[in-house]
């Protein structure tokens, strides 16, 4: 059994909150066709959390991740990263925000097919303007940590689904973001591969303190999560922190 407690929202970076949403809403349509994909969601994410956002289809999981990642603008409310509101950012600042602070892992791997595993990892660091030596050292280290040291020169089409998702994890982590947002990362993997991948991410979380937020239906993720946020109809139904 997990011990549970409720978290409250806080905008104070001094509390160690890495991410915060306040009264976050995202509505589509208007009048009779108004859909409240997300409705006044407030939550905080602390460093090192391994959080799973769960809920039925249409509950707002993906929308919440999109808003947290600055991929969409909220209808109302605000997202803070270490106390800084992202709604006031320009398009260019948002791009830089995603580049420097967010790591994304997508359901369908979404690697750039014309780049090798190493180049996929290196790309984001090129955007950051890191020197070549540092880029190469980080890529080598990261691919080793995800168990792909011998496959750096392979393109995505030459890797299995599990290997591609490992590259995606490496790409998300290599830029040393504040948080990794993963949208159903195991949905396209068989259970053994998915389990291995989760073990790897869990290990990275425990060993390196990397903060993960998952949107998922996968019981394996829920099992490993240190915090479980249940969404329903765009609202938080429960927020459970496990010890």
């Amino acid at each position: 059994m997990h011990a549970t407690k409720q978290r409250t929202a806080s905008a104070d970076p001094a509390t160690g909150v890495v991410f915060e949403t306040r009264e976050l809403s995202r509505h589509y349509g208007s009048g009779d066709t108004l859909v409240k994909a997300l409705d006044k969601v407030s939550l905080t994410i602390a460093p090192g959390e391994f959080t799973a956002i769960v809920g039925p289809s249409g509950s707002g999981k993906s929308t919440l991740l999109q808003l947290m990642g600055g991929l969409e603008a909220p209808t109302a409310g605000e997202v803070y990263l270490r106390g800084q509101a992202i709604s006031s950012m320009s398009g260019r600042e948002l791009s830089d925000f995603r580049r420097d602070h967010i790591g994304f892992i997508f359901q369908a791997y979404n690697l750039i097919p014309v780049l090798t595993a190493a180049e996929n990892c290196e790309y984001i660091m090129l955007l950051q303007g890191l020197p070549k030596a540092e880029r190469q050292a980080r890529v080598e280290s990261m691919l080793t940590r995800v168990g792909l040291s011998g496959k750096a020169d392979r393109r995505p089409a030459q890797l299995s689904g599990g290997q591609q998702q490992r590259v995606a994890v490496a790409r998300a982590m290599v830029s040393q973001p504040d948080i990794i947002l993963a949208d159903e990362p195991t949905a396209n993997l068989d259970s053994q591969t998915g389990s291995d991948l989760l073990d790897m991410m869990h290990e990275l979380n425990r060993r390196e303190g990397m903060t993960f937020v998952f949107s998922t239906h996968d019981p394996m993720i829920m099992e490993r999560a240190s915090r479980l946020i249940q969404l329903r109809d765009g609202r938080i139904e429960s927020d459970e922190v496990r010890s």
Partner: peptide
């Protein structure tokens, strides 16, 4: 389109 979406999502500027 999805690939360009990925590039933009991970921090590539629109100008790039």
């Amino acid at each position: 389109t999805w690939e360009i979406g990925v590039l933009l999502a991970i921090g590539t500027r629109r100008l790039a």
